[in-house]
Amino acid sequence: MDVFMKGLSKAKEGVVAAAEKTKQGVAEAAGKTKEGVLYVGSKTKEGVVHGVATVAEKTKEQVTNVGGAVVTGVTAVAQKTVEGAGSIAAATGFVKKDQLGKNEEGAPQEGILEDMPVDPDNEAYEMPSEEGYQDYEPEA
């Protein structure tokens, strides 16, 4: 019985440690998101679009440190934060509304985080759909 109880105690310690790591990862992701939003706020009209992409990228980098179902929630929060940063930029006159959601080359930025393969159960990952990809044929 002692062996059984000791095993359960060790398992509990492992769960607590994993929860603490997840909590730490979420806190880091939130900190990076805040950094990115402050970065966007300090940019001029020309830099705002690039700044919004930076927020998304920093958040995406930190999301990889967070495991399990938390990833889905962090990704949703990050996307809403990026959308909010863009709205703030438009409201303050840093950028025109028609410039939001495009990178410096004018290509749409939507789907940055949505296409990231995420499995809350950590069982399997699927690649994003290939609808947006084109076949590449090298020139002879």
Rank of each mutant, 00 (worst) to 15 (best):
M1E: 00
D2C: 09
D2T: 11
D2W: 02
V3H: 06
V3E: 00
V3C: 02
V3I: 04
F4M: 03
F4L: 12
F4S: 00
M5S: 05
M5P: 00
K6Q: 02
K6E: 01
G7A: 03
G7K: 13
L8A: 01
L8Y: 02
L8N: 00
S9R: 12
S9I: 13
S9H: 09
S9L: 03
K10P: 00
A11S: 06
A11W: 15
A11V: 15
A11E: 00
E13F: 03
E13C: 03
E13L: 01
G14S: 12
G14C: 10
V15Q: 00
V16I: 14
A17G: 05
A18G: 03
A19N: 01
A19T: 02
A19K: 03
E20F: 15
K21V: 09
K21M: 05
T22V: 13
K23F: 06
G25L: 13
G25I: 06
G25Y: 14
V26K: 00
V26E: 00
A27D: 02
A27W: 08
A27N: 09
E28M: 11
A29P: 00
A30W: 03
G31Q: 10
G31K: 08
G31T: 07
G31A: 09
K32S: 11
K32M: 03
K32C: 10
K32R: 08
T33K: 00
T33E: 00
E35A: 09
E35N: 12
E35F: 13
E35K: 07
G36M: 15
V37N: 00
L38Y: 15
Y39C: 04
Y39A: 02
V40D: 00
V40N: 00
V40W: 04
G41W: 09
G41D: 00
G41E: 01
S42Y: 09
S42Q: 08
K43Y: 11
K43A: 13
T44H: 02
T44D: 00
K45T: 09
K45I: 11
K45P: 03
E46D: 07
E46S: 12
E46L: 05
G47H: 12
G47E: 03
V48L: 11
V49R: 14
V49E: 03
H50N: 09
H50A: 12
G51L: 13
G51K: 07
G51M: 13
V52I: 05
A53M: 03
A53I: 10
A53G: 08
A53R: 15
T54Q: 09
T54S: 07
T54Y: 13
V55D: 00
V55R: 01
V55M: 13
V55G: 02
A56F: 13
A56W: 13
A56P: 01
E57G: 06
E57N: 11
K58H: 13
K58W: 07
K58Y: 08
T59Q: 01
T59L: 07
T59G: 14
E61H: 08
E61Y: 03
E61R: 03
E61W: 11
E61Q: 09
Q62F: 10
V63Q: 01
V63S: 02
T64S: 12
T64E: 10
T64W: 09
N65V: 10
N65K: 06
N65I: 11
N65T: 05
V66Q: 01
V66G: 02
V66N: 01
V66F: 07
V66W: 11
V66A: 07
V66S: 01
G68C: 02
G68K: 13
G68D: 09
A69I: 10
A69V: 07
A69G: 07
A69D: 05
V70R: 02
V70C: 03
V70F: 02
V70Y: 02
V70M: 14
V70H: 01
V70A: 03
V71H: 14
V71R: 11
T72D: 09
T72S: 07
T72A: 13
G73D: 01
V74W: 09
T75C: 06
T75V: 15
T75P: 01
T75D: 03
T75N: 08
A76T: 12
A76W: 12
A76Y: 15
V77D: 01
A78Y: 12
A78P: 02
A78I: 10
Q79Y: 05
Q79W: 05
Q79P: 01
Q79V: 08
Q79S: 11
K80Q: 04
T81G: 05
T81M: 14
V82M: 13
E83S: 04
E83H: 11
E83G: 07
E83I: 15
E83N: 09
G84S: 14
G84A: 15
A85C: 08
A85G: 05
A85W: 14
G86K: 12
G86P: 03
G86H: 08
S87V: 10
S87W: 13
S87H: 13
I88W: 09
I88C: 05
A89L: 11
A89I: 13
A89G: 07
T92H: 03
T92L: 12
G93H: 07
F94E: 03
F94L: 11
F94P: 03
V95R: 13
V95H: 04
K96C: 10
K96G: 09
K97L: 05
D98K: 09
D98A: 05
D98E: 10
Q99V: 11
Q99E: 06
Q99R: 05
L100S: 15
G101L: 10
G101V: 05
G101N: 02
K102V: 03
K102I: 03
K102R: 04
N103G: 08
E104P: 13
E104S: 06
E104Q: 10
E105A: 11
E105F: 05
G106K: 14
G106A: 06
G106E: 06
G106P: 07
A107H: 05
A107K: 08
P108Q: 13
Q109V: 07
G111V: 15
G111N: 14
I112G: 11
L113F: 10
L113Y: 08
L113N: 02
L113V: 06
E114C: 04
D115Q: 11
D115E: 10
M116L: 09
P117W: 10
V118D: 09
V118L: 08
D119C: 14
D119M: 09
P120K: 09
P120I: 12
D121E: 09
D121A: 06
D121P: 07
N122H: 12
N122R: 11
N122K: 14
N122L: 03
E123G: 10
E123D: 13
A124S: 12
Y125T: 08
Y125V: 08
Y125A: 06
E126R: 10
E126T: 04
M127S: 05
M127G: 07
M127Q: 14
M127Y: 12
P128I: 06
P128D: 10
P128R: 05
P128F: 02
P128W: 07
E130V: 14
E130Y: 11
E130N: 09
E131P: 08
E131C: 13
E131R: 15
Y133T: 04
Y133P: 10
Y133F: 08
Y133S: 05
Q134T: 02
Q134I: 06
Q134V: 02
D135E: 07
D135S: 03
D135A: 03
D135F: 05
D135P: 02
D135V: 06
D135Q: 07
Y136Q: 06
Y136S: 14
Y136G: 03
Y136K: 07
E137A: 08
E137K: 03
P138E: 05
P138F: 07
E139T: 03
E139V: 05
E139Q: 08
A140K: 15
